[in-house]
Each structure stands twice: as C-alpha cells, then as structure tokens.
Design a protein around this nucleic acid. Structure first.
Lengths: 191, 191, 191, 191
DNA sequence: CATGAATGAGGATTCATTCAT
DNA sequence: GATGAATGAATCCTCATTCAT
C-alpha cells in the first residue's frame, strides 16, 4: 500500500487514540471513537492503520520515539556519567509531567499482550546510547556489578514511581524528581 | 435447603479467570472462556459475580490479599528495620516467582480503569504495618527525609523491576532478588 | 400433579404477578421478580404454575372471574333491562376504579398472543346471564337490531373508554360513569 | 459520498417489524427476526434504530401517522358535523380492515409501557382538527355536554369494538361499520 | 482517497426452567 | 414440598472491518 496521502491525518488519528485510550482504556475504546475524535471517517482509520492492533503498536512506537527524543536529543555527551543520567532522568520526568495522557497510555500499552516483541525492541532502540553509558559505568566500577539491563530496569522502575508520586495531588511541594534520582544514584552507584 | 453457594466454585472461577486473563489479556477474554475453564455453566459465573467488572475487581482484591498474606504473615516484628524490609522484599519476590500468572494479571489490573478506587484502597490496606515501620525509619533518620508513600513507591517500583528481571529467560544466574534489595536499601537509607 | 399444598401461596404468586406486571409490563417481568415479591422461592412458582404461560393464562382467568363476580353477584334479576345494564355498568367501573393495577394488567393480557382461545372463552363464560338479557332486549326491540356480541362489544368499548377517562388526573368532577352509561344506552336503544 | 442511508431499508425494517410483531407479539420477537425478514444484517437494524425500544416507538408513531393520513387527508371541511365524523369513522374502519396486521400491532403497542409519553402525544397530534370539530359540536349543543376528550374516547372505544366485530370470521354480512357509527352518533348527540 | 452504511461474528447478560439438597 | 443454585439457549447490542458510492 502506497504511503497514505496526509501525514496530518495520520497524526490526528494517533492523537485521538491517545486521548480516547487515556479516557476509556485501550480495549474499551472502539475505533469509531478514535476516528470521530480525529475528525475522520470510520473507514479512513483503516487506510492509515491496517487494523486496531497495528494502530496500537504504531502508537506505542510513536510514543517511545517521542519520549526518546525528549530524553536523548539534548544528551550531554561530554558531561560526567552522573550528569548524563541526571539529565536523562529529568528530561524523562519533565516529558511525563508535560504529557500525562501519553504517559498513562504508555503504561497501559506496556503491559498489553497486543504489543509485539518487535515493537518493544524498536521502542527501546533509541536508548542505545544510554545503555552504552551504563555499560561503561559498570566496567569502570562506577555502578555495582550487575547487568546493565537490570540497572536500566531499576532506572525505569524508580522513574515511574517518581512520576506517580509527582502526579499525586497532595502538593507537598517536595522535589520528588531530584529525590528520586538520588535514590537511583545512591542505589546503583558502587558505595 | 437448596444447594448452598459453593466457595469451591467461586474459587474455580477466580482461578480460571487468572489463567485466561494471563493467556489472553483481561479485556480479550470472554466470560464464556472463564466459565468453561472453571467447569461451570456460562450463567453460573453471574451468580457468583454480578458482572465482569465485579469479577475483575474481586479478583484484584483477592490477589492483593493473597500477596499481602505472603508478604506479611511471617513479618518479623522483632527484627531490625533492614531485616523487616528485606524479609518483606524477599517474600514479595518469592510469591511473584511462584505465581507468575497471578503476577502478570495483577500487572494488567493495576493499570486498568475498571478497578475502582475502593478496590485499590482495600488492596493496600494490609500493608499498614509496613507503612508504620517506614515512618519509624524516617523519624529515626534511618531513611532519607521523604514522605513514606514516596519511599513505598520506590520499594514497589524496584521490586517490580526486579521481578521483571527475574522473569527474563536469560538465566544469567545473577541473584537479582538480593541485588534489587541492596539497590533499594542503599537508595533510601540515609548515607 | 396433585393439587399443591397451599392456596395462600398460589394467591400470593398471582397477586405478586399483578403488581409486577402492572409496574413493568407482562413480558418484561421475570418470573424471579414475581416469586421474590410473592415471598417464595424461584422454583416454587413452578410447582404452582407449570410455566410462565400457564401462570399468565390462569391470572387472566382469575381476573375475569373476579371481575365477573363483582359485576354479576348482585345482578338485579327482577329489575328493568335498563336497570340491569346500568347496574352491571356501575359495578364494572367501580371494580375497575378500586383495582387499577388489575385493570391495567387485564388490558395488557387481553391483547396478548399468549392467552389461549380456551382461556378467553372461560373468561367470558360468567357473563352468559347478561348476554341472555341482551338477546332478550334485541328480541323485544328494546335494542337496535344487531347481534348481541356486537352490542356487548360496544358495552365493553365504552366502559373501557370511560374507565380511562376516570383514571385521568384532571379531576374535573364530571360524573363520567353515569355519562358513559347514557352514551351506551342511547346508542344501542332503539330510538 | 458513502452509501446514503436508505429510506427503503428503513421502511423494510418497519414493515418487517409489523409482520413479525403481528405474528409473534412485540416482546417475543427478537430483533434478529426483524432484520432477517427485512433482508438486512442484524447490525443494520441498529444503524436505523438505536435500540429495540426506539424502533418500537418509531413504529408506533409511523402507524399513527399513516392512520391519521388515512383518516384526515380527505377530511370534508365543508360538510355537516355528522358527515365529518361519519367520514372519519369510515376511513378509520376501512384503514383498519385494509391493514389488519398494522391494526393488531397498534393494539399491542397502545398498552405497552415502552411507548413514551412523547410518542403518544406525537401520535395524537394529527387529530387536532377533529378535536376542534368536537368542541364546536359541544358548544353548539349538537353533542351532550361533556369534555371533548371524553367524547373522543367514546369514539375510539366504539371504533375499536366495531373493528373487532368486523374482524370476526362469522361473516354475518351485517354492516357493522355503519351500525357502529350510528351507536356513536345516537350516543353522543343531544337527544 | 474519503466516506459512513453494511456486515455478522462475538460478547455480556438474562431468565425460564430443572434439580440437588 | 420448598429452596435457590445451576443451566445454557436466547437476546440485544457492539464493533472491527469491508465495500459501495
């Protein structure tokens, strides 16, 4: 199938999907709701995405790419390791705070069975640079002696927890973002 | 008088739900699949759970209760703080490893819109004891000066990440469970 | 099947059926609603009535019998024809006003396909006396020269219309009952 | 652009509904039977009528409109009052005889709880002209001194009874239609 | 290509009836 | 006989996808 005409329309559909998925849950949202919100006809959705599964996978990939861009595009290649991770951490949280719907949808998609392994791999590709830095840190004994993917998982888990804390409406004013990163760094840095 | 409602049947339905939800995803499993797996008629499911939503909420609560029991029933009330948290951490991970399906389903339910606030609250009730210990640690300056719910979130986030790492089939033999706890403790303990 | 034990229970079921049918419509009322209102178990209903259809037919018959009793038990066998019909007319309307639910249900059952011809015939049996008087009136040229069943239909149609008028909440105070009978009598009496 | 919604298909569904409702009763006919008879897919019914309730209400309204058209479209505005009512009466009965199924269905719908007040009002709107004539007759002392709606109810009640008599298969050859109107007129005309 | 009506398999639930207790 | 849990066919409706316009 040739590339469909309008990139705008494709994006409108993806945006509508985010909005609807966030509001009603991924598997409770009919494609008709998405097309309506996107302002296109029901059938049009299927000229841009062959099926709902495809749409969902592409959306996941798109969100990952956007997040990766937010996190990595200003990556301070020359800073210290700590600064590199801190920078990425902060970009992550800022993006998450700026895009709560996208964040919520990513959370739902992450645990979904309909996201293929291929999509998942594509989604983590842009973070290769960060992985390399992690490996370096392990090698240089800056980090504890654990596989990078494990350390990456810690990073993610803590970031998500921090995000959730930031999202709470208790407004205690605490700077969870910085606190969260401290937990991460103290946790994985070799004592 | 009359057949009494059977706890066995209720459990069979919940077990079947776990099995099917893990295999096909919560919102892709028809109630008919659950009843078939449970060995009851389609209608019987609805004498035990008024609707699929109710079933899903009760299942979430039941899983939480089971997990809480695994984590807290052998809580070492007289041990040191570190030992208390370590114990709970290990019980958590052991339960998770022993019940991967339940774990997977909990992961899906946690992000679901259909789980009510009430259910969520009921699910976290059994961990009150742990919260208290956390507060104590903050007060005694064992932990960094952050709200307990934030520290609890860190605990959870790291535990989940560790679980995921344990579930990976790379079988590197690394003891992720212990390593994960070390990250947690170093992270939240006052340096 | 032997006569079931308790006549009371049978009546409770019929009464409950009237109440529920009036409130929710005959075919929107589950048998379970009837048994609940009657204060008996779901299954018990079926020891008194073999099926819902049977229940509905017996109810129709019972209502007809009750109405017939109200109309005919004080039938003034020695009065003039006009007085006879007027008496029956008034009894009819009084019964209808006194039992609006029963009346409503009869209205629904009358047009229902599930009422058998046999039931309908049984329902009109108690009015034989009145039919005879009608025939007499035709023969004696008190009524216009039409078949009695046609005149009976007029009687019924006008009585129902009068009932509906009485049920309206406009409360104009008009004596519809008497006015309705006058319309009937003028209409069918030979001028 | 796109297939336009077809009035034909809508009518086919309404016609099928009449046929099936007449044969099996309104609440015993599955929507699937209607769509099959109409020659459309099960789902198509719901693009024309949002629910069975909506279909039933629209059907009632459509039947009323059709009947009103039959009765009122040739209304002899310049004839005498008696002729006006006689005309409408005859049109009513002719329509009823010509469309026994529609008539039967209207009878069932009239007593149904699912017909909304709004639908009922819309259904009686086209008869305003006749109501006015009735009021005129009361004012000019052609009719007895009763509210028009009461006289209207008599008209209806008698017409229905006459219809039922006409529908009986005794084929006595009696001209019930004319006889019925005579009953009406004698009944309501001031003696 | 865009549109939205048409399709029909699938799904949650209901409910008359049966039957174990 | 009474009870109410168990049954599963039947029902209304949804929705991903197709296709005529």
């Amino acid at each position: 199938m040739a590339r469909p005409r309008s990139e705008d329309k494709r994006n409108a559909i993806l945006d509508a999907a985010i909005e609807e998925f966030a509001a009603r849950g991924v598997w409770s949202t009919p494609t008709a709701a998405i097309s309506r919100t996107a302002g296109v006809a029901e059938g049009t959705l299927f000229t841009y995405f062959a099926s709902k599964d495809v749409l969902v996978n592409e959306l996941y990939r798109a969100l990952k790419v956007e997040l990766a861009d937010a996190m990595m595009s200003t990556y301070p290649a020359k800073a210290s390791s700590r600064e590199k991770f801190a920078h990425v951490w902060m970009q992550y949280l800022q993006w998450a705070m700026a895009h709560p719907l996208k964040c919520k949808v990513m959370g739902q998609l992450r645990v979904s069975d309909r996201i293929t392994t291929e999509t998942r791999e594509a989604g983590s590709a842009p973070f290769a640079e960060l992985l390399r830095e992690g490996e370096e840190c392990v090698r240089r004994k800056v980090f504890v002696d654990q596989p990078v993917h494990f350390i990456g998982a810690m990073f993610n888990g803590l970031a998500e927890a921090t995000m959730a804390a930031l999202a709470e409406p208790d407004g205690s004013g605490t700077d969870y973002a910085a606190a969260g990163f401290d937990v991460f760094w103290r946790g994985v840095a070799r004592p």
